[in-house]
Design a protein around this nucleic acid. Sequence first.
DNA 1: AAAGCCTGCGCAAACGATTGTGCAAATTTG
DNA 2: CAAATTTGCACAATCGTTTGCGCAGGCTTT
Lengths: 336, 336
Amino acid sequence: MAQKNTLLTISEQTGYSVSTISRVLSGKAKTYRISRETETLIKEAAQRLNYQPNLIAQTLRTQKSNTVGLLIPEVDNPFFASLAGIIIGILHSRGYHVLLADSRESARDEVQELRMFMSRSVDGIICIPVSSTPDFHEHVSSQIPMVLIDRHFKKTSLSYVCTDNYAGSRMATEYLLDKGYKRILAIQGVPDSMPNKERVRGFVDAIGVHGVDYKIAGNAFSVENGNREILAAFSGGREYDAVFAFSATILLGAIDALRRLNLRPGKDVGIISYDNNGFLDFMDPAVTRVEQPLREAGKVAVDTLMEIIAARRAGHPDPASRQILIPPTLVVRGSC
Amino acid sequence: MAQKNTLLTISEQTGYSVSTISRVLSGKAKTYRISRETETLIKEAAQRLNYQPNLIAQTLRTQKSNTVGLLIPEVDNPFFASLAGIIIGILHSRGYHVLLADSRESARDEVQELRMFMSRSVDGIICIPVSSTPDFHEHVSSQIPMVLIDRHFKKTSLSYVCTDNYAGSRMATEYLLDKGYKRILAIQGVPDSMPNKERVRGFVDAIGVHGVDYKIAGNAFSVENGNREILAAFSGGREYDAVFAFSATILLGAIDALRRLNLRPGKDVGIISYDNNGFLDFMDPAVTRVEQPLREAGKVAVDTLMEIIAARRAGHPDPASRQILIPPTLVVRGSC
DNA sequence: AAAGCCTGCGCAAACGATTGTGCAAATTTG
DNA sequence: CAAATTTGCACAATCGTTTGCGCAGGCTTT
């Protein structure tokens, strides 16, 4: 029934000018001295015609879209998907729409998607960055409010909120060491990403103190990577008595490979992981792991973004760059 | 560096009119007889100025946004999230951007979000519907190409692609019956949703033939629901020897509750579930389940949408409504 | 009674692209 | 060589909003 009704339609129906209609419907009736009867008349017409403002035109004119661009490395990855879900939920509750894109762990695609966000006039951007140089991101941020989450750059003025991956990794490793494991294999994710680097650092530092055998292998937050690295590490005759998986996806691959090698995860080989997935409690055995406070991180990120947006709208300088590391927690179960 | 450069900027730099610039940059140089040298000159200028077309203006003018709206019931729910992830991946590979919204299982919110999609001039909509009446959806579909996925309406002309939930549920139930289970508890999800109704029907039909004890309880695809219904069903003294969880989230809640009651899932109580989650293979015990071919469903849905979009652009009538049920598969593990 | 002010609203210019049409100059045709 | 084309591009309208400014008519002020 209701077709594309524009301000013009209402104007023709009521006899008032398009500008008057616009002012009434955007709640600016008082400021522009529109009489009360005109106001209700117009509102009724709008109601009757089931008028819906064209958000595209609105955005073009006002340069604000009520939309936030969310850029994650991979939609397929359950960790990013779940973090994205959390952030989207928060953004919706704040009245923002969400454009979701993924960079497929590629710096080129990342640039392209960020450009796309800019040409779409998003009001802000939340980004899990992929590239290792902040240059382009700083440029984007100079045009559109942006905050990073989960990953960040070393030297940058960008605001970010991540969890303390160094602390988390160190905590996990020390737990393994306390348990008496002597030959530890860490399977990492994307090597250049900051969380991964920090986890490696935490792992090495923890090991360093105790001086046990260890190895760091792998290169992706994927099931295949976990699988491959276990097979490679255990088929060389050189075996490990504990495995530290840097993500749940890696973990699944690792467990699968171990079973294939007739090694019982949790018994023959100690297992510890990084991730929040609720399924970890129901696995065989339940997995001891480092959990990150994702919901809190998401909230802080969105809040920070909102503040930057508000500041720029008001013509103020950005709030001081907020660079936050939230401490993760060790959830002890029976896998090591 | 690169600021907001528009066609006007390039026009001023090159001396050519905005229209000429536009035609060159949108590849219509030949059709409008722009000379080759003018063309390269303009392209170089665009390059140099790092011109990015304003997608909002483009959309307003052309009425196409290269964007698809994706509406799911809940971002939090891992099943929807994973299906969304799959669809988003496919859409990206087809060159579409994605606006993601969730209806929070509320028909009101659903209408609102669909309206939002319309005022954003999305080129198409993929929707997991919540409401039980197709009226508004048919209306939307008359304005913007739309296909439903996962859930559908009984009597409707809308295209949809779902999996055959009746067959899947019946298959699972018959498997349980074959195994000799005599008192079966099914824990359902959102009762009004079509997949749920179909699963109930499949369950009941399968049971009907054999005439064993059964009960259907629950009302949400959530962990809490699984938990609650197990506690309710088993604390009444009346116990069941098998549980059919209609989703993995329900399953987790159920298993947790069973353990709390000192019942070993898979041994004391048979367990079967509906869902694809990769973790199900690593649980204790690995869960026998009905898996849905989500990737295929996603592909078919996107393809169908593309065809409708193409047809309407060409001024043709829509392709015949495509209402597809893809058969699911039973993945047998050790939980029953 | 002339000068000022308030009320209530319309005009028209943006925002940045696309596109039908028009019109000189250059070229071809007969 | 005049007429007919063709070439190469610019003008201006348009998509649907928002918003600065202006302007009648009525009312108040001194």
